[in-house]
Write a protein that binds this DNA or RNA. Structure first.
Lengths: 202, 202, 202, 202
DNA sequence: AATGAATGAGTGTTCATTCAT
DNA sequence: GATGAATGAACACTCATTCAT
């Protein structure tokens, strides 16, 4: 007859609130009070479920990574041929800013900035980046092999693709007004396809 | 009798101190006290030369933009053929992170994060981005023409290049450990060259 | 489970502390630290209960107005004939400085000074002044009618009375040493009574 | 051949600047920087001519007192009969707010507020008030004598008049919007004339 | 689990005053 | 006399964190 713990649900609510607030305010301005208000909870409750504000941030990074991974799986399931799968993946990721989850994109940009100065955040950020890079390298490698090329070019191509995506997120958050519309997915695909074509034979 | 004004020199010192502190601490943590200490000045003096902390940030954005513009001019002077000039430019810009001015790159990443939330910062950030985009569009256009292609592809190619560079800066600041070494310049050049080759005839 | 809110009580305490500090220090010198100390609270707590220092001031104006209104009601209840009621009222008000609430008088003088420069304070100050003026006009009108005079003279007589009272407060706070003792109530009553006698017939 | 000292002229300029700034900003907000700017002088120069900010305030009180005294003399010169002279005087003083020197009135109100909390200011304020009171007592006494009354009523009548004037200044600065127009001079004269008429025979 | 008050260090900013020139 | 930079101690206000209830 003991009360069921709702800690996990509460934690998820708080992380989601942090996402929403951080997307438009940044980490420093995402105060505990603001997060609590966004979540509809009492401020004191936040520190009951999280030791510190940074712990919420770390949980948020994990949550965003999980979400991106889900999109990766979904995109993979939609196509069979390597190039088609890559295309689906890039469209999925770069579509985040426009349609699906602009909040998540903005928060991710903020997390990137925090990663520059908080070592602990940088650590988990790098883990996510490394995983993404590995996924991309795998995909690019498959595309290269299918095109009769050597896998050797995959890591650098993947890194370039990741940089392009990261930059597109940043610019969509901070300079949308001066960027062309919808260039990003097209640019990423062109970069990949041309890069494959230009890669040396296996 | 009268005393000579040293405001311009002091302002430059303060901006430089802001650059240094912000590069490793971010904007919020770059407190006036910290900036003053870095500059070796009394805290109260900062506000004698700048109306607000944000004004220092805006001055820093201008300073970085000026510096990048100088590099652009220098890079242009070294080569004549469009593609050679583009290559020189990309090498110059993307070399910032590794050799020349990693502090400036880190600060620029922080400024990008601030641009997401501070409208006034966003404005000047966008001005700089727009100028960079215009330069890149001009260069890509020249390359396309030289290759007998239509200029029409230039804006999107330039946007992709800018995103790639922006992302490379972000990742060099926050995830250097997991990225391949020296991929960025190569990736940018490959993206440009392949993009030109794939563009429709004029 | 939940904790009961003590905000209203705390707010009242803080307003009272502001009254005490402001009475002898003025608004600018009534620092949040000083108010907190007077109230026996931690400085940070002040801003938990009030959004800003000015908000405390505005609450104080309301509190003083409420207090004056109570005295008005009390004074009214003590007498029936218009002139007797007026006399009771003036004695009540002008007795504030000497006996009842010299702190409140001093604070009211300070509020008057703030009203000159802070628009928001001026607004509420004027509201209180206008209410007082309306009360006085009503009383003077009743006295005039009772004496068979026209009500037309009431507004100007009331204004003169209010000025006399306001000035008496100011001088009792800043120049008590050089003013005759207990002149104020007598002067106000003489002004009113003589003014009624000199008013034109209805 | 030594440079002629312009200290007196400079001091007067600074005092005048303090008057202007204080009239709309109050004493605390009348910063040395603001006064210097108003006077068109370098900030550092202020403290060359005045030991402290308070010293400027004290000089201002004296200057306003001198100005009021001049008006007193002028008003006296315009009429011979005691009542006519009183009337001229009250018109002169209470006309300050509307026509002649609203700045001076506003500053005087601010000085009155400072007098409540700064002992040194209170001292000179009281001196001025005492002098004014003496002048008024003399005038009222003359009027009483002329009307065949005892001088005994003069001090209290003078005090009431001074309170009325002081309050009129305060309300013209802080609550002009809700007060009747031009009531003050009329009210003061009525108070004096009726008071004389009601005074006991000599 | 939950509440909301409480704490106190820290923030950007202001400003009287000082001082080298 | 005059200048304008420099100082440092305030100030109002913010906020992560703690704690009694």
């Amino acid at each position: 007859m003991s009360r069921k713990s709702n800690t996990e649900a509460r934690r998820a609510e708080i992380v989601e609130a942090m996402l929403a607030v951080m997307a438009q305010q940044g980490y420093e301005k995402a105060t505990i009070q603001a997060v609590a208000k966004q979540a509809g909870l009492a401020p004191g409750l936040i520190h009951y479920h999280f030791k510190s504000k940074q712990e919420i941030l770390l949980a948020l990074v994990q949550a965003i990574a999980r979400y991106a991974q889900q999109r990766y799986q979904t995109a993979l399931g939609e196509a069979q041929a390597p190039v088609a799968r890559l295309q689906a993946y890039l469209n999925a990721q770069l579509g985040l800013g426009e349609g699906a989850a602009p909040q998540m994109v903005a928060a991710w940009v903020m997390i990137g900035a925090e990663a520059v100065r908080q070592a602990e955040v940088r650590e988990v950020y790098q883990t996510v980046i490394a995983a993404e890079l590995a996924s991309l390298t795998q995909m690019m490698g498959d595309c290269l092999v299918e095109a009769g090329r050597s896998r050797a070019a995959a890591p650098d191509l993947a890194a370039g693709l990741l940089a392009l995506m990261t930059g597109a997120f940043q610019l969509s958050s901070a300079a949308q007004a001066v960027m062309p519309t919808g260039y990003a997915a097209e640019a990423a695909i062109a970069y990949a396809v041309n890069g494959i074509a230009a890669a040396p034979q296996a």
